[in-house]
Simulated assay, not measured.
Amino acid sequence: MDKIKNSKILITGGAGFIGSNLADALIEDNEIVIVDDLSMGKIENLPQSTHLHFFEHSITDEEFMNRLLLNWKFDYIFLLAAVASVADTIVRPIETHEVNQNANLSILEIIRVNQLPVKKILFASSAAVYGNMPELPKREESNVDPQSPYAIDKYATERFTINYGKLYGIPTVATRFFNVYGPKQNPNSPYSGVLSLISNAIKTDGMFSVFGDGEQTRDFVYINDVIQALNLLMLSDQTLFQVYNVATSKVTSLNQVINNFEAISGKKLKVKYVSDRLGDIKNSYADISKIRSVGYKPQISILEGLRKYWDFLVDENEGNLK
């Protein structure tokens, strides 16, 4: 896989799940700066390296971000920081809007005003922008119907990122992540992926609540494939001012995931079936032909990914999960 090399890289939200895995993949060949307020990320997620420079800060601190961007003159910028809890954005729409949209817009504006020579900026959007639109699979050209302040901010910032690029000659690209999973996912996060919640319930002998009949489907993509996609989109000249689904285009039901996890772990999950949640999407999966056209090839099947994820959890807990 082609990887970014010999570059200065900024990862906002870099102590979180996706950001810290990205840092792991790139740290050997680059100087990496991470800005994270640790509201959901964890310092222990970060690689130990003299190439890593960590700042515990909110990206809403415009004065700090201005100094940082002017001092470092980054080659590549990954805008991953977000308040990722949909529920939190519903309770605190104005405060979360500051992080999820305004702070990212401010970063773009600092780059524009100072004509900083960035090679590419990537904004991490979400499949949540599609909302309850019935069309399957989800294509980048599909209609969107963002349902929450989180999804609205993701969509608006995605458009800002792409159109700032077009209007002001700033190289930009955006991704719509589907259901990403893998090591360093935080089961205590209010927006934790369903797979980390299931694995946590198995290892703690806890109860897992299934909303509905468990036949709802998702497009689960393993973190290594996401890292592959991020590198490709940054390095390819074809991806300027474009939005890309990052997924596998494979459909997996929640019940299948539970069965696979039980087989891999050798443990029985305690499951409680409860009523559907209002507004929950029944089925979702991506058309990935657009990102395939620039060389993306998802490598990790759901079974292999779950096995890798479980092995990581076992190692992390020194074998006490078995």
Rank of each mutant, 00 (worst) to 15 (best):
Glu44Phe: 02
Ala174Gln: 04
Glu109Val: 13
Ile27Phe: 08
Asp24Ser: 09
Phe74Leu: 05
Lys42Arg: 10
Ile32Glu: 00
Thr248Gly: 05
Ser142Tyr: 10
Ala103Asn: 04
Arg139Gly: 04
Ile152Gln: 12
Asn71Gln: 11
Arg218Asn: 06
Thr89Ile: 04
Lys166Phe: 07
Leu70Lys: 10
Lys270Pro: 03
Glu95Leu: 14
Asp219Lys: 02
Arg139Thr: 09
Ile18Gln: 10
Asn100His: 07
Val173Asp: 14
Phe123Ser: 05
Gln48His: 15
Lys120Arg: 13
Met40Gln: 14
Pro134Met: 07
Leu10Ile: 07
Leu52Cys: 03
Leu197Gln: 01
Phe312Gly: 14
Asn100Trp: 00
Pro187Thr: 00
Asp225Val: 09
Ala156Lys: 02
Val91Tyr: 06
Gln299Val: 08
Asn114Thr: 02
Ser293Val: 13
Thr12Asn: 07
Gly206Ser: 03
Leu68Val: 02
Gly206Gln: 04
Tyr309Arg: 06
Asn200Tyr: 15
Phe123Asp: 08
Ser275Thr: 06
Ala247Val: 01
Ser7Trp: 10
Val210Gly: 03
Gln147Tyr: 11
Asn104Glu: 08
Leu108Val: 04
Leu22Gly: 03
Thr204Arg: 07
Ala128Pro: 03
Thr157Met: 12
Ser142Arg: 06
Val83Phe: 06
Lys184Cys: 07
Lys268Leu: 07
Ser189Tyr: 13
Ile9Leu: 11
Asn30Met: 14
Phe55Ser: 09
Val314Ser: 09
Gln48Lys: 14
Pro171Phe: 00
Gly14Phe: 06
Arg139Asn: 01
Glu215Lys: 00
Gln101Ser: 02
Gln238Thr: 15
Thr248Asp: 01
Gly14Met: 12
Leu80Ile: 15
Gly279Glu: 01
Tyr244Ile: 11
Glu28Val: 12
Asn163Leu: 13
Ser106Glu: 15
Lys184Phe: 01
Pro146Ser: 00
Gly193Ala: 05
Val35Met: 01
Asp219Arg: 01
Asn320Glu: 15
Leu22Thr: 05
Asn179Arg: 10
Tyr273Pro: 04
Leu306Cys: 13
Leu122Val: 03
Val257Trp: 01
Tyr244Val: 13
Pro171Met: 05
Leu116Gly: 04
Asn6Ile: 07
Phe312Ile: 14
Ile32Arg: 08
Pro134Asn: 06
Trp72Ser: 11
Asn6Val: 09
Asp213Pro: 04
Gly295Arg: 12
Leu52Glu: 01
Gly266Asn: 03
Ile302Lys: 12
Ala81Gln: 09
Asn30Trp: 12
Ala23Cys: 10
Asp205Ala: 15
Gln228Cys: 09
Ser85Cys: 01
Thr12Phe: 00
Phe55Arg: 08
Gln242Gly: 13
Glu141His: 11
Ile111Leu: 08
Glu28Met: 10
Ala127Pro: 05
Asn30Asp: 13
Val294Ala: 14
Ile90Gly: 14
Gln256Ile: 08
Lys272Asn: 15
Glu28Cys: 10
Asp280Tyr: 12
Ala124Asn: 06
Phe177His: 08
Gly193Cys: 06
Gln147Leu: 13
Pro149Arg: 05
Asn100Gly: 06
Leu269Gly: 09
